[in-house]
Design a protein around this nucleic acid. Structure first.
Length: 511
RNA sequence: GCCGCCUUAGCUCAGUCGGUUAGAGCGCUAGAAUGUGGAUCUAGAGGUCCCCUGUUCGAUUCAGGGAGGCGGUACCA
């Protein structure tokens, strides 16, 4: 211990995929969340909150094994050796919550929640390992009317966030159609079904050729990486391509007829031959969903039927929907970026059944708040809620700080952000510089001259900056004192309230 | 996981065909100007040239390995 040990100095750094949030980020998020919440509330939804951790077995079929306890999720073992995980979405915890409280919950249960979720994966553009989602779900409503509500609410949310009609689109589809088609062509194995889903999901990314390869033998990308295909028959591949290329329900219906003529239908559980497993799904779209959208005035410029919208997840059982931005997103380096969807969801009638054993239908969607924020930020469409800094009361005479603090208290009582300068007051210029850098609307000056006359100087920093734009030399700048005026001491608060920056801010804060 | 590009001051980036004191702009600090924020001028601080190993008399520079960032691709229960 004689010699000084070299002190360990940790490097100031963050784990990959995690980030600090600046005050501008936080304010922007708050504004976004408030707008989303307003839409959800309007639709009759109420909030609920669940914790960050869940037992791992409650979160899906993924169970941490001892070899790879953290693949995809962040997991750890509690002191009783049970595995728990940070939630990777908000749907699985909701299913758990509903199952656990099923007797207390009034169905149909309209619920929303927002919060951080965590994924132990490689981060991508606008993708982090901790990010925020904002979900809404209707539990206990089996009909497509509930799905229609979700799609319409997504559209309204996009517009509430300032994304213009035409700059986004909600794509909807019914998984029953695709599931039926797969059944008809004999794809029953789960793994193969998943490959087909994933292949179709990439239709807008890789186009027809790419999907054709993925449905068949496999696809090699530009980097030489090979993706195993679904191994479908050529004639079925052609039909599936036709199906997902359909731009209207009528077209889809025609393609499905071709399937029927080739396969002749299947035999169902009742033993009926020539059963068409995709008919039910088609009926839901034509006879129910489309009518609801039409009646409510949600045309194809907002909600569009799209057979290539399948979503990669296997737990969806009916309608699926996805919100997509239709403009190009470029990052801060000016590179165009593959942005993908900013939200999506669908009907998951089997998730709660995992816990209860009884069928509980549910439908819901999730908005990727963090992703959406990145997109809006890159577009410069983000309202970062910039508010003026505090009014700074300058310290001219140290023995008067009681009086300065009193001014601060009066301003605060009037609801105006204010503070007395807390740095070294020796250099007066520093105080104004501080106020300027804080984007303060005003500085308040009372030295002995002003005190004797019973006045204070108000320096309107925002207006002063504008007024002085033309002043080039420092002498004039100093003698003209742009934006500065005297008021009676007892008029301080009133006069500050009149400043445009302060007034605007106070108005904006009214509820 | 796989492929490509990148990493030099707080930030954005030059540069060194392998050589002595590694630069610029912006920012920051101080002063010109001790009661006036900006602009201007002057001065100053600030560096493990991402890390490790190797080649070499000598490595920020070359080679191998690693980490981190960005982009693509896969995975996303």
């Amino acid at each position: 211990m004689a010699k000084k040990q070299k002190k360990f100095k940790p490097k100031a750094r963050l784990p990959r995929g995690f980030g600090d949030r600046s005050s501008a980020d936080i304010k922007a998020t708050d504004i976004m969340l408030a707008k989303i919440r307003q839409v959800y509330e309007l639709y009759g939804f109420d909030p609920v909150e669940t914790p960050f951790f869940e037992y791992s077995d409650a979160m899906g079929k993924f169970l941490p094994d001892t070899d790879r306890p953290n693949a995809g999720v962040f997991s750890l073992q509690d002191d009783d050796e049970q595995w728990m995980s940070l939630r990777y979405d908000l749907t699985a915890p909701l299913a758990r919550h509903v199952a656990q409280n099923i007797n207390q919950i009034t169905m149909p249960y309209r619920t929303y929640r927002q919060g951080w979720v965590f994924r132990n994966e490689k981060p991508g553009p606008g993708r982090f390992r901790q990010f925020m989602q904002f979900d809404a779900d209707i539990v206990g409503a089996p009909g497509v009317a509930a799905d229609a509500e979700m799609a319409m609410m997504m559209a309204d949310t996009m517009e509430a966030l300032g994304i213009k009609r035409g700059d986004y689109v909600i794509r909807v589809n019914n998984r029953k159609v695709l599931d039926g088609v797969l059944e008809a062509i004999g794809v029953t194995e789960e793994a193969q079904k998943l490959s087909v889903l994933r292949a179709i999901d990439k239709f807008d990314k890789f186009g027809e050729e790419g999907v054709r390869l993925l449905l068949g033998k496999g696809r090699k990308d530009e980097s030489g990486d090979f993706t195993e295909g679904a191994g479908l028959d050529d004639r079925f591949i052609g039909l599936i391509i036709l199906m997902i290329s359909a731009t209207s329900v009528t077209e889809l219906w025609k393609v499905l007829n071709q399937f029927t003529s080739i396969t002749g239908g299947v035999t169902n559980e009742m033993g009926t031959e020539g059963f068409l497993p995709y008919d039910d799904g088609l009926y839901e779209i034509i006879e129910q969903l489309q009518k609801l959208f039409d009646a409510a005035g949600y045309n194809s410029d907002r909600i569009r039927f799209d057979p290539s919208c399948v979503r990669g997840l296997e737990y969806y059982t009916g309608m699926v929907y996805e919100a997509e931005l239709t403009f190009d997103v470029t990052n801060e380096k000016g590179q165009k970026v593959q942005f993908g969807s900013v939200g999506g969801g669908g009907r998951y009638d089997g998730l709660i059944e995992r816990f209860t054993g009884q069928k509980v239908p549910a439908t819901g969607f999730s908005i990727g708040v963090s992703r959406l924020m990145t997109a809006l930020k890159n577009l410069d469409k983000l309202d970062d809620g910039q508010i003026p800094g505090p009014v700074v009361v300058c310290v001219m005479d140290r023995d008067q700080i009681g009086e300065y603090q009193k001014m601060v208290a009066e301003l605060r009582d009037a609801g105006i952000r204010a503070e007395m300068y807390q740095g070294n007051p020796k250099n007066f210029g520093k105080q104004l510089q501080y106020a300027d850098r804080r984007n303060s609307p005003a500085a308040i000056i009372q030295g002995s001259d002003e005190r004797e006359k019973g006045i204070v100087q108000i320096k309107d920093l925002h207006e002063g900056k504008k007024a002085a734009a033309a002043i080039a030399d420092n002498e004039t700048w100093k003698s003209e004192r742009p934006g500065q005026f005297e008021v009676k001491r007892d008029q301080l608060v009133n006069e500050i309230k009149k400043l445009p920056a302060v007034n605007n801010w106070l108005e904006g804060n009214k509820v």
